[in-house]
């Protein structure tokens, strides 16, 4: 797909990794719509982006926002499901004797933000792609944690399910000319990574990574653009992790 002029919707695109992807898409000539729940961060974005306030866990809100975007631009070519929140909690927490076991509420909340949101947004956008006969692309931002990462029961489960949906949708939608891929970053130097992991653990991860450093958001954005541009790439989980294994 040619990105020049492509109508591209990215969720959670007002900061961090999402913002890097939004900038890269814009640099490739795409018309970029940034949807985010963080209105303050949205306000701070430059005018080159079409900014939409959106809670991606709300199906009705997602559907009406997507319908409005499709009506305004005539189509949606690209959806990047980037919105999500890194969440770490082990199944058993020996350091918290009063609440030793993983909370079911927090498990459900993590899945709502990182998994349900991908289903909700893809449903809304693919409906428009099908109705308007757009041969579009869906890119899901997965994670190395999809392989199972200790201390991340819920987050790992959510990202593994995102990978499974990616492959499923690639098979279902390929016949309509709609492709679906995922990009699975390793450990990337973003504010959310810094908030989730302390300095000791970051040093440890750098030591485990063959390239001996965290990834850069721009490098993930580069992979997203490649996955959109290549018309024969479908159902792929593209690892971008410096060679680290967990």
């Amino acid at each position: 797909m040619k990105l020049d002029g492509a109508v591209s919707l990215i969720t959670g695109g007002s900061k961090g990794l999402g913002l890097a992807i939004a900038h890269r898409l814009r640099a490739e000539g795409a018309r970029v719509i940034v949807a985010d729940i963080d209105n303050v961060a949205l306000e701070a974005l430059p005018d080159v982006f079409d900014r939409r306030s959106l809670d991606v866990t709300q199906p009705d809100e997602a559907k009406s926002t997507v319908e409005a975007i499709a009506a305004m631009y005539g189509r949606i070519d690209v959806l990047v499901n980037n919105a999500g929140v890194i969440y770490s909690e082990p199944l058993v927490n020996l350091m918290n004797p009063d609440g030793m076991m993983h909370s079911y509420d927090r498990f459900r909340q993590c899945l709502r933000v990182n998994l349900d949101s991908v289903f909700i947004m893809t449903s809304a956008v693919v409906e428009q792609m099908v109705l308007r006969r757009t041969k579009g692309v869906v890119i899901n931002i997965s994670s190395i944690s999809a392989r199972g990462n200790e201390g991340q029961t819920a987050y790992s489960a959510a990202k593994a399910a995102v990978n499974a949906m990616t492959v499923t949708w690639s098979k279902e939608l390929g016949r309509l000319g709609i492709r679906c891929n995922a990009v699975a970053p390793g450990f990337v130097d973003t504010p959310s990574t810094r908030a989730a992991l302390n300095e000791t653990i970051i040093k440890h991860i750098e030591g485990l990574t063959p390239l001996r450093r965290l990834g850069r958001a721009e490098e993930i954005a580069q992979a997203v653009v490649a996955a959109i541009a290549n018309d024969f790439l479908n159902g792929t989980i593209l690892d971008v992790n410096g060679g680290v294994t967990i």
């Binding site: 082990p90 058993v92 927490n93 020996l94 350091m95 918290n96 200790e150 201390g151 302390n198 300095e199 000791t200 653990i201 440890h204």
Partner: peptide, 17 residues
């Protein structure tokens, strides 16, 4: 103490045990 050690979390506690 555990507060002095950045990676002294529940999983490390299991390793310690």
């Amino acid at each position: 103490t555990k507060d002095d050690v950045g990676n002294w979390d529940s999983l490390k506690q299991m390793d310690l045990v």
